[in-house]
């Protein structure tokens, strides 16, 4: 079963076409890397995966619903099942780290955690137990990434989308973040991770069945074994 499906989808900003005729089916529980040169459209591709952008032509289906036919509120509702971690992860700067991480629960109207996970466990899982009451502007780059990860998974989403989550952190922190994502994948979540860090991709491939998508010349192709 596929959670995200691209069907001859094309996307262009005001300039020329950026992604052309993309067809792809992301099945449940898979682990994908999205790689490609800077400006090739990795972020654009991920934005279509969580409904922030709608293709100019062709279709993108989220959980078997055509993005084109969904209202803004339906997209918002569907995106609760998609945890998103962006490079410049943003928070509500006037609320504590804990409150920020718990915010998706408040927004969705659910006040209890699913998966028998409580907030404390989640904080210690991402190693932020000591920073629980800090405000986001007081966090380091790596701490921000981990807080964003915690916020992305608190609703127990089916899909995790991460746009260069290791962009701002050192190698050790990259490995730690990757381990967390691999753990989530082993719990059955679909993970899509945009990165051009080849050593990270190699490390992941040694631990999970990860596929690598390469964006080049407006197309997305499955990269071979040789990276």
């Amino acid at each position: 079963m596929s959670v995200i499906e691209f069907e001859n989808a094309s996307y262009s900003y005001t300039g020329g076409e950026l992604l052309s005729d993309v067809s792809l089916s992301v099945s449940t529980g898979s682990f994908y890397f999205i790689t490609g040169p800077s400006g090739s459209g990795k972020t654009t591709f991920l934005k279509m995966c969580y409904g922030a952008l709608v293709p100019n032509s062709g279709h993108v289906h989220l959980f078997d619903h055509d993005l084109r036919q969904m209202t803004r509120d339906e997209v918002a509702h569907a995106s609760r099942k998609i945890g998103v971690i962006l490079l410049d992860c943003q928070f509500l700067d006037h609320m504590s780290v804990t409150e920020n991480i718990a915010l998706p629960l408040a927004v969705s109207g659910e006040d209890r955690l699913s998966d028998n996970m409580n907030l404390k466990e989640l904080l210690s899982w991402v190693g932020l137990i000591g920073r629980a009451d800090a405000l986001p502007p007081e966090l380091s780059g790596g701490e921000r990434q981990r807080a964003a990860l915690a916020r992305a998974v608190i609703m127990s989403p089916d899909i995790i989308l991460a746009d260069e989550p290791t962009g701002n952190v050192d190698w050790e922190m990259s490995q730690r973040l990757l381990q967390l994502l691999i753990e989530l994948n082993k719990m059955g979540k679909t993970v899509l991770l945009a990165s051009h860090d080849l050593s990270l991709i190699r490390l992941a491939k040694s631990q999970v069945q990860a596929r690598v998508l390469r964006i080049a010349n407006k197309r997305i192709q499955l990269a071979g074994a040789n990276l």
Partner: peptide
Amino acid sequence: AQVISVLRLIGAQDNY
């Protein structure tokens, strides 16, 4: 604007 984009990212509907 940042508050709105964060809320949107975590699935808040327009009404909220």
